[in-house]
């Protein structure tokens, strides 16, 4: 049962809440206690944009048990507008549709359950922007 560990990350996983260093302006996701850019310990809350681009990706064929039913699935590194990067799945696509620099946006999805009886853990995934 992961409730305590899970709930702590909810502001980031659900709402992309980041910390912006008041010293140098660097955005930290997740927020930190000390800025690795300038050493400042003062931050203000910032919400990251949901739009970004895909930097690299892989197709996972061999997965941990919590993810094994969903193979093959795509995991990539996304750079959000404004420069923050994160690792997440790229859902609702064929790997053939992907390209470095492809525009993506983050959506709210189920990520995993540690077992069938455990809590459902939600978070962000990317999907291709298909305007």
């Amino acid at each position: 049962m992961k409730s305590a560990q899970y709930i702590r990350e909810v502001p980031q996983r659900y709402r992309l809440e980041a910390g912006k260093c008041t010293g140098c302006g660097k955005l930290h996701f997740p927020p930190r206690l000390v800025c690795d850019g300038c050493g400042s310990r003062e931050f203000e809350a910032a919400t990251l944009p949901r739009q970004g681009t895909l930097l690299t990706w892989t197709v996972i064929h061999a997965a941990p048990p919590q993810f094994s039913l969903e193979t093959p699935y795509v995991v990539g590194i996304v750079e959000l507008d404004g420069g923050v990067r994160l690792t997440c799945q790229v859902a609702d696509c064929d790997p053939e549709e992907l390209a470095v620099g492809a525009p993506v946006e983050l959506v709210f999805r189920r990520i995993k359950e540690d077992n069938a009886a455990d809590i459902i853990q939600y978070g962000y995934k990317a999907v291709l922007r298909r305007e």
Binding site: E9, Q12, R13, P30, T58, I60, A62, A63, P64, Q66, F67, E70, Y73, V75, L86, T87, C88, Q89, I111, K112, Q121, G123, K125
Partner: peptide
Amino acid sequence: YEAYQGIT
């Protein structure tokens, strides 16, 4: 922020 997302 990595393993949680299903990366190996």
